[in-house]
Structure formats: structure tokens, C-alpha cells
């Protein structure tokens, strides 16, 4: 395992700057998740580390060695792609064994078998090893694809939305599985996703990416509770953070220069209004199974929060809204931290 360092890396495709002066260090044994929407440059960043793209400027080093100009095959990284690509004519076993049989790292068959079986057990596909790849379900195929990356012990694992084609339950299981694998093998993992739940639950740190730039990097808790700007604040949180012009709600003590206020569920206390203190009205309650979202109208604006399970609120109820320690932002979106 090894540390990965990107230093001022830039990658252009024609006029488009896909990755813009990116500097990032993934520590040895760390799980870093790059979070951003489609087109933010997260996949390109991974491909730069893998050597599948050449940087136009800056350097990439792995384990202290500069690999900026090194061929992908010589970098000792493995890459899990979003669209799993297995060899359809091979069994699950042979797909998993394939990377170990490459001429570059010839190993005795007994060692290969031991390793494949170990990884298969970890991914709970031991009973499927003899199945042809085409006879596996989508979830099984993706586990084989991840397994193919795990059979080797590379210096770095690179993963590009590896769970996005799985259904919700398997995704939940695989999140825990990847965390466990990371802990068990001490793997250095750089993982990209657009899914905030994956980022929050798996990452030791999350790097939020926008337009090819790293906007903020920190632990999930730091990114969620202490965002540097409005963009980062809106990337995390379900329901999404409410953004209101400063002054719409009384909050007592907005810092100078605050133009907007960001309000998450935990910054709001919503209660059925006593006489005369009504601020808003419950518009609808959206039941999503495990959570319910409370939509409240407030002087023509709308606030959405997670409904407390026992709030007892109903559609049409007048409510009072109390604000505690919200997030303030300047007109340009920069966070203004309180005094």
C-alpha cells in the first residue's frame, strides 16, 4: 500500500479543462472519496492516477515515486470501472484468477486458487465460482469485477462508481463490505461517486469536486457540518439544505456580510404554533418509507426538513419555526463563520 500525491495536475481535452490544478494527497491506507456530479472531472482524475490519461501539467506520485510519465501497466494500481466488464466465456473463478495469471506476475496455480477463494469468500460469491460470467446476476457480476481488483495486492485501488449498478440493498451491503476490506487489508483507495451516501458512509475523507477543481476536502462530518461554501453545503444532506435570503427568519446574530442562510433539519425546530406565533404552514408530508419529508411554506418560500417521527404534525397545520446555529454565506457563496 502506498500514498498517492497529485500535485497541481491539469488535464485539458481541447478547449475543456477537465481537471484544473488539482492537488490532493491520499495517505497510505486511507479511503478518499471524490464527490461530484457528472462532468466534474472525477473520473478523469482517477484515470490520471491510473495512467490512462497523461497530465498536461503537474505530477502524480505513488508511494513516493513520480509516475507522471509511467505506463499504466507499470503503476501497480487496479481500476474498478462503473460498467463491469467480465470475460463472458470464462467462469467467475477464471475471471478472478485472470489478473494473477498475467505473464508479468506468474504465480503457481495453488497460490492463485487460495487467493481467489479467499477473495470470493470475502465477497460472498464462493458458491458461484464455477458459474459462467453470463450466468451471474448483476450484483454477482459486479462483485466479481470488484474481486478481480482485490485478488492482487496493488499499491492503490481506484474505483469509479463501482456500486451504481447494484440495487439498494446490495449497495448497502457492499458499502460495509468495502469499508471492511479497506480495514482488513489496509488498502489505499481513491473512489469516485456522485452519491453522497456512498461518500459519507465510506470515506475517511471526502473531496468535493466542481468544474475540475477540488473545492473542499475533509472528513464526512467536517464537510457536512462545516462546509466552506454554499456549493459544498448543497452537495450533502437529504433533504437538501434550505437556502433562504438572510432576514427571512429571525435567527439573532447573523454575522456581517451574510446574504443567505443555509438551514438543515438540525438547524430548525418546527412546532405546531401557539396563538399568534405562526410562521409557516405544513404544505405536504412526503412519505419515502424510512423517512418523511415535511414541506413547509413560509411567506411564499418553501422549507423542507426531515419530519420527526413523533412530531404529530399534519398537512395544513400552522407552525412556528425556530432557528439554531444555521450556516451563513456571503453573496458569492463563501461561508461566513460566526464569531
Amino acid at each position: 500500500m502506498a500514498e498517492v500525491v497529485l500535485n497541481g495536475v491539469t488535464k485539458r481535452f481541447g478547449e475543456t479543462v477537465a481537471v484544473d490544478d488539482m492537488s490532493l494527497t491520499v495517505a497510505d491506507g486511507e479511503f478518499v472519496v471524490l464527490l461530484g456530479p457528472t462532468g466534474a472531472g472525477k473520473t478523469t482524475t482517477l484515470r490520471l492516477v491510473a495512467g490512462l490519461e497523461r497530465a498536461d501539467a503537474g505530477s502524480v506520485s505513488i508511494g513516493g515515486a513520480d509516475v507522471t510519465g509511467t505506463e499504466p501497466a507499470a503503476r501497480d494500481v487496479t481500476f474498478v470501472f462503473q460498467q463491469y466488464s467480465l470475460y463472458p466465456h470464462l467462469s467467475a473463478y477464471d475471471n478472478l484468477a485472470f489478473p494473477l495469471r498475467s505473464p508479468a506476475r506468474r504465480q503457481p496455480e495453488a497460490a492463485i486458487r487460495a487467493r481467489v477463494e479467499e477473495v470470493a469468500a470475502m465477497l460472498r460469491i464462493s458458491s458461484k465460482l464455477n458459474n459462467k460470467a453470463t450466468r451471474l446476476s448483476g450484483g454477482e457480476m459486479q462483485r466479481v469485477a470488484i474481486g478481480r481488483a482485490l485478488v492482487r495486492n496493488p499499491q492503490v485501488y481506484l474505483m469509479d462508481e463501482p456500486l451504481s449498478s447494484l440495487d439498494a440493498k446490495l449497495r448497502g451491503d457492499m458499502r460495509l463490505e468495502l469499508k471492511r476490506i479497506k480495514k482488513d487489508v489496509g488498502a489505499t483507495i481513491l473512489y469516485v461517486t456522485h452519491d453522497q451516501v456512498e461518500a459519507m458512509t465510506m470515506g475517511d475523507r471526502i473531496g468535493v469536486i466542481r468544474d475540475g477543481r477540488l473545492v473542499q476536502i475533509g472528513t464526512p462530518r467536517q464537510i457536512y457540518t462545516d462546509p466552506d461554501d454554499l456549493y459544498v453545503a448543497t452537495r450533502l444532506g437529504q433533504p437538501a439544505i434550505n437556502v433562504l435570503p438572510q432576514g427571512v427568519l429571525p435567527d439573532g446574530g447573523a454575522p456581517a456580510g451574510a446574504a443567505t442562510v443555509g438551514l438543515r433539519t438540525e438547524h430548525l425546530r418546527i412546532r405546531r404554533a401557539a396563538n399568534g406565533e405562526a410562521r409557516g404552514q405544513v404544505d405536504w408530508i412526503e412519505h419515502l418509507g424510512d423517512q418523511s419529508h415535511l414541506h413547509i411554506s413560509l411567506d411564499g418560500r418553501r422549507i423542507t426538513t426531515l419530519a420527526e417521527p413523533d412530531s404529530g404534525l399534519d398537512v395544513g397545520d400552522k407552525v412556528s419555526i425556530e432557528v439554531t446555529e444555521p450556516l451563513y454565506f456571503a453573496a458569492d457563496g463563501t461561508r461566513i463563520r460566526g464569531a
Partner: peptide
């Protein structure tokens, strides 16, 4: 054995 942080809530195993 595990806590998955989700911001407002967390899933604890």
C-alpha cells in the same frame, strides 16, 4: 460494530 454517518442521521450496526 459500525456507524455510517449520513449527516442528520446515522445507521448504526
Amino acid at each position: 460494530v459500525d456507524a455510517e454517518y449520513l449527516g442528520t442521521t446515522q445507521i448504526v450496526t
